[in-house]
Design a protein around this nucleic acid. Structure first.
Lengths: 380, 380
DNA sequence: TTCATTCGTTCGGAAGACGAACAAACTACC
DNA sequence: GGTAGTTTGTTCGTCTTCCGAACGAATGAA
């Protein structure tokens, strides 16, 4: 804990206002009513941001009785944030406004295997920077999502291990991201950050994302469960059969060995997710059977997870997103069987973001951080 | 989020100082150095509490050069908090000072089965109140620990279900605790609150407590993981064999069916934990074999838990506390086998509190809450 | 055209923390 | 034993920030 002084009060209240503005433009009087601050205080806090170009006044909102209020909202030419995700076979990047509005997207194929950290993150940072520069708007922060557990979340963060890109093991991504060195940088695990993309749909949930392995993120009270060592949410290695199939982690019976994409495709006898989806749509029983088995295994693991962290919703994403039609019923049935829906209803949802969840969630996290430190917005 | 004003600053800084004082008496100047507040501010915040009898000045601490400081600490006649735990076969109660110092303890046998909520919690509240009254010190708060999942944590909390005391299902404990109606009341799950008793030993950990079932609490960043529905930390129903032994929850293969005390004693062929411990001490291989099997099952479940919430320590408590000698190696070996000790060392500890962990942790939680709302200490 | 209503701004007051200055209490040293 | 140096606790003026009341501005209703 740190001591509180007058500036902390200002920062807190400003963050409160900006958080309210994320839901859409609002007049000073309406903000005063929704936050509990005085109209004068609201004006005093936000006017400097209007002057700095972060916020903009809209058209007066006539219609009711009395003097119409002038709505304040994030300026269309105000600061943006950029997110970039380093994936096994490419880069995804996204630029959004502070309110999450998408400004620009990009996706580049690129073979990352056997490249060293300087190449991978140097290129990622340059890609992010140039995409952001193309908007002509100032950059308020950047985020890098990586495919592996991360300790720390700022520029000092360490990528502990990258199962599919072993040359990145133990590196510090920020060290190689020179192109983003001049803005606040956030580094995090791909699945943990992807979870944040689903904040609107539920307040607490487990997000499960299938790639080569199974990653995940747990959101409670609107925030991602941190984890002391940066590895929280590793749903892939939840055990469902203690003496079951061997897993890459050295253990046996991890869900990943049953419901990971590799296992799922092997079970169905198909080469990739697209083929699996096509076969399932065509009613191929080998495909639908494999999906039902994977969903059941996933449901078992999620039952354990839900018992431990007690969230009300499960969101299936990543490679699972396109397979929701077949996975959701199986997952739901298995969780039902384990008594998780009786008293407190739980729901199983499919991510609407698909593979883009990672950059969407990362951008959200970066924007959250920028809005929590509003003084930086004035400086930039 | 609520707006911040000057009084919030005062409350925050006062809580900061009181938190620092919990580690032991300290002079105003030393507190100024450790918190970052001015000496003048420290005096201004704490002097009213000295006047109110919550804090007391000790003997000046001569020894160094310069004017000696007068240490401030919690007054021996200052406010206390009381915790009471409702167990299947009795009540445990504890009175501590705001700094956690034990003032008075009590334990009463009492058959709770088939009693209604008014009897159970009426008696619990009267027991707590009279134990606190016996100290002659003012009462700053009370806590009730219950054997089942709880939604909410204040006077409106609902005991969702009590597996071993079914007549308590769905009741509101605070409604029946008339004897404690005049102080802030906290209600929580027995194992979640018990976890807090171990805060000194680790900063983040899973606490696993065996009673009839297996309960638990997860502490991250010094706070218990809340859980949206009040059921967080239900380690007992983590699955270790998806088609394994049937469990009371309706599912199959929950750890509880392998490592719960009931299963453990049945496996060993002994009537109670004391007999099991005695047999194991005597080297009885039936007993030690059963303990090794239970520890291994527990280790499997804990591996899943640790992967999900990523904590560095496991604490075995409740009925497990006396069996640590045999359980710890088995748990540790199983977690090792699952790759959890390689990079980040994890440790497995035995609770030093035994059955008293619940009331100790509950008192801690009540004191935490009282110290976070210091204005109430002045009123009382 | 006038009145009621709501919005945004302005100004004095209060709460609380900071920093500098000062008296008090003690050690170290000659 | 006296004096210098050091550290503690208190006091007082200043700064930041918010609140509440008062006021002009902009609009719909009568």
């Amino acid at each position: 804990m740190t001591p509180a002084r007058a500036p902390e009060v200002r920062r807190h209240n400003l963050a409160l206002l900006l958080g309210a503005l994320r839901d859409g433009p609002s007049s000073r009087a309406a903000l005063s009513a929704s936050t509990g601050l005085t109209r004068g205080t609201v004006a005093g806090l936000l006017d400097p941001l209007v002057a700095a170009g972060v916020l903009a006044e809209g058209e007066p909102d006539r219609g009711g009785v009395g003097r119409p209020g002038t709505p304040l909202g994030f300026a269309g030419s105000g600061p943006v944030v950029v997110a970039v995700s380093v994936e096994v076979d490419g880069l995804a990047a996204l630029v959004t406004g502070l309110d999450g509005r998408v400004v620009r997207r990009a996706r580049h194929r690129r073979v990352h295997r056997d490249r060293d950290p300087a190449e991978v993150f140097g290129r990622a940072a340059r890609t992010a920077r140039s995409l952001a520069a193309g908007t002509g708007r100032p950059l308020a922060g950047a985020g890098i999502a990586v495919p592996g557990p991360v300790r720390g979340s700022d520029a000092g963060a360490v990528l502990l291990q990258a199962p599919n890109l072993p040359r990145l093991d133990g590196c510090r991504p920020a060290e190689h991201a020179a192109a983003l060195a001049d803005v606040p940088l956030l580094v995090g695990n791909e699945a943990s950050l992807g979870a944040l993309a689903h904040l609107g749909q539920a307040e607490d949930f487990v997000y499960v994302s299938a790639d080569v392995g199974i990653g995940g993120g747990i959101v409670v009270d609107g925030r991602v469960l941190p984890g002391a060592r940066g590895v929280a949410g590793e749903v892939g290695h939840v055990v469902i059969e203690r003496d079951g199939r061997p897993c890459g982690c050295g253990g046996t019976g991890c869900v990943e060995a049953y419901a990971g994409l590799t296992a799922l495709l092997a079970d169905a006898g198909l080469p990739d997710v697209a083929a699996l989806r096509a076969a399932a749509l065509a009613g191929d029983t080998a495909a639908t059977g494999a999906l039902a088995r994977a969903g059941s295994a996933l449901g078992t693991a999620l039952a354990s997870v839900v018992h431990v962290v007690d969230v009300g919703t499960v969101v299936l994403g990543g490679g699972y997103a396109g397979l929701g039609t077949w996975l959701v019923p199986a997952v739901h049935a298995e969780m039902d069987r384990r008594g998780l829906t009786a008293g407190a209803r739980r729901s199983v949802l499919v991510s609407p973001h698909g593979r883009a969840a990672t950059v969407t969630g990362t951008a959200r996290a970066v924007a959250d951080r920028a809005l929590a430190e509003p003084d930086l917005l004035l400086a930039g």
